[in-house]
Design a protein around this nucleic acid. Structure first.
Lengths: 232, 232
DNA sequence: CGTACCGTTGAGCAGGCTCAACCGCTGTGG
DNA sequence: CCACAGCGGTTGAGCCTGCTCAACGGTACG
């Protein structure tokens, strides 16, 4: 659908009484953005931009999953966020991207020049407010990430991570897609990949989850699952 | 100065070629915000709002330091961010504050109703873009926080924390104010307060920093200091 | 001067990291 | 068709660092 209407943005709206995540943009706004954006395809694993390079473009995801990450001097890699359909990224400010972005699955993106978007925002206050909502929403995501990684125990972090993925999963109830590698998950969670693997095995062994293949998890015991996720 | 001109916002501006943190608002905008905001004083330690309560107001800090935190079921407390002059907070969305806010020092705030601010933003696209810049800036801060807490070693985390405080310190070069308690710092860093204490002692013992009282740190060996902060 | 709070220091324990071997699937070339 | 290498993932052994529990020290305030 997005393919025809132009990009959307997903977030909770401003102000009271709106708890649901909804598409933010009006039809007019979507077609307006579509008119200043071009569509691009990236195969799995392709780098979209590199940390430190000139930040000329802003992206909105039409479909697929992107990871945003930063490589540290030690060679370690920190995944800062996973991005899904209707997420915005590349709003880097100050001319350089602060991190790198890479396609995890095949990805379709809307791409527009920073300056073009800035003009559009300055002409359309409603549009600017929508973007504001979106970024506030993302900041909340960043805070949740912080809460996750400050947990001590690997099982707890992984469980919260699964819960987070579940909200972005389009599978049926209690089935969660793990589209990224264990390494990516570990880099997001601030754990070693072994710790992630052990935590998943642990959850499986205690009958809380089951694997259907290596990339799909089924939640068997929702009560204990939620208890672990909440107990920190 | 802010007292007379109305609130400001500090962030890097949108687009290329602007790397500096600057006041974002025009005089007109500052007086406009001042006209819809009221000024409030909070003594040290006072709670500004509580997590889960009705989010009716948005705040801009005129002076002082605020911490934003969340209490977990286990009784542990996570400090999500420290807020300084010209920072905005309370943009909670969906009607309820996601976390609590408390004054660490005596604080002066501009306060405005969410709905009033939303109206102002929808009428003034430039103003909305400025807020957008601000929130993007804050999101970058949240990402830096995430990078800090995913470090393994306490000394490294504390050093990065000192570096962060230095940027918000109004003391002269190489002197850093620690306005918050060790407990607050520990809750921000995801460490026990003992670990924070030991890390600071360690830095002092190795001659990298020195204490002038318990709340002011002087950086003695900038080279090693930066090396520790960068080495992760 | 006593009390309370904040901070420092010490001893022992636990959980995650590192190093390393092994497993299973995939793609490739003989 | 099979052998092999390569990659992603799992599992095991030992170490290291930060947590917990606990006692002590110093400073502010009544």
């Amino acid at each position: 659908m997005s393919e025809f209407l132009g990009p959307s943005l997903r977030a909770t709206v401003f102000g009271p009484g709106a708890k649901d995540v909804v598409g933010l943009l009006s039809l007019r706004q979507r077609s307006q953005i579509a008119s200043i954006a071009t569509s691009h395809q990236f195969p799995r694993g392709e780098l979209i931009y590199r940390e430190g390079s000139n930040a000329q473009s802003v992206f909105i995801i039409a479909s697929g999953i992107v990871k945003s990450f930063r490589d540290l001097p030690s060679g370690k890699r920190r995944v800062l966020t996973f991005l899904f359909a209707d997420d915005v990224f590349g709003l880097a400010q100050s001319g350089q991207y602060m991190n790198s972005a890479q396609a995890i699955t095949p990805v379709t993106l809307y791409r527009m020049r920073v300056s073009t978007l800035a003009d559009a925002l300055r002409r359309d206050a409603d549009l600017a407010v929508q973007f504001l909502c979106k970024v506030v929403h993302e900041r909340r995501g960043a805070l949740r990430h912080t809460v996750i990684v400050t947990r001590r125990d690997a099982v707890g972090r992984v469980t919260m991570f699964l819960r987070l993925l579940e909200q972005n999963s389009d599978l049926d109830k209690d089935r969660i897609d793990l589209p990224m590698s264990r390494v990516d998950a570990a880099n997001y969670l601030g754990l070693s990949l072994e710790a992630v693997s052990r935590a998943l095995s642990e959850l499986e062994r205690s009958g809380i989850i089951a694997f259907e293949g290596r990339r799909i998890v089924r939640v068997l015991d929702r009560v204990r699952f939620e208890k672990i996720a909440a107990a920190l």
